[in-house]
Design a protein around this nucleic acid. Structure first.
Lengths: 203, 203
DNA sequence: TCCATTTACTACAGTTGTGTAGCATTCTAG
DNA sequence: CTAGAATGCTACACAACTGTAGTAAATGGA
């Protein structure tokens, strides 16, 4: 009989480069959200999109560059959201009032874009080096901002560095709680606890 | 010419099973500390010890069982250390005094066995499932203890659940700071900040 | 000493992932 | 309607890791 003509893989819809790159970045983000950073690979991204690996190599030089580009995108999204929610100009205001506006804002921010925030809050330690360095750099920048705020409000005697580390760790973890169980950890409860702490400090 | 008789790998010193198992667990822990959880593999463990893979398979059924056994060991070490440092019987005491004893004790504990604590504090999220589940389970148990403490000391009005999450997140993060830069984050500074917070709360 | 046991090694087959070269298809402009 | 550019696919050569079957060396007791 004639060769059964081994079936050729059906062509995936053709997509122009610029669009393809966005699509691949989205796929990578989806994988990170679903399977964690361990799950991301050129292979996985290609499969997620339904194309073969050479297509991915056509758009990016490898996994590193792909992730770097993804981070550029996510970094901008995240920092924009964050500095919109944080009360950066509140140097002179009543700290309790500031907290009671900021915490619900952060709560809403995280829930409004859970994929972005899960990728950032989910453990900046055991992830690819490109990713870890980037997230830690941004984190440090945010912490420095908090340190300035704390120092401004509390003045000399306070250990602003350690305090800012503590505050950021608290916010990080509360963010994770919200993502893990939004029904249980509501804006009210979180605001309540952080507000009480702030009130106590300034009483 | 006669076959050069391909060189056979020199025999590693023979070691009885029981001892070999311990040695392999130590090697795995070393790798985790040095390269993160991503670096652990049967292959890596074998190389670290200087034997071939079948030796490892002779001692454990695979990476999963090996890690499980390692966790049994580390779990015991960690919980023993932790409950020795935590003031579990301090229900009635002055909270500030309790904190000012507990924080330096925890600080010393972490620095006394950094390898154990780095493996636990280094982000229980993107790690192998066996590991993550175990660490999260223990973490939750510790948090429940803290929640009881908080509820006992503060009574009804406080949100003990959220507070206990916050406290544990703070302790975790301070632990990481100490491991990352012991010279900078001293027991005095950490005790200072946590002590001030406690004082403020009870003032 | 010699044999049985214990321990270690070699070799092979399979899996998943990387990265590249060359061919096939589709689309578009003229 | 026909190039040629753009896009996708196949196929191959590697590399790192898993798991196992069979073989070789060391060790200790009869």
């Amino acid at each position: 009989m004639p060769e059964p003509a081994r079936k050729r893989r059906p062509y995936a819809p053709r997509v122009p480069m610029v669009e393809r790159r966005e699509q691949l970045l989205d796929a990578a983000l989806t994988i990170i959200d679903r399977d964690g950073y361990d799950g991301v690979s050129i292979d996985a991204v290609a499969r997620e999109v339904g194309v073969t690996r050479p297509v991915v190599y056509g758009a990016f030089d490898g996994l590193g560059p792909l992730l770097t580009t993804l981070l550029d995108r996510q970094q901008e999204r995240a920092l924009t959201q964050l500095f919109a929610a944080l009360p950066l100009d509140a140097a002179g205001d009543d700290p309790v009032a500031v907290v009671e506006r900021a915490v619900p804002a952060l709560h809403a921010m995280v829930l409004a874009d859970p994929v972005t925030w899960r990728a950032i809050l989910a453990s900046p330690v055991t992830v690819p080096d490109v990713v870890r360095e980037r997230i830690e750099g941004d984190r440090e920048r945010v912490r420095a901002v908090i340190e300035q705020l704390v120092a401004g409000v509390l003045g000399e005697p306070a250990d602003a560095e350690v305090l800012s580390h503590g505050i950021l760790a608290l916010l990080d973890h509360f963010g994770r709680l919200v993502l893990a169980d939004p029904g249980r950890f509501t804006a009210e409860r979180l605001t309540g606890v952080i507000g009480s702490l702030t009130k106590a400090w300034f009483a």
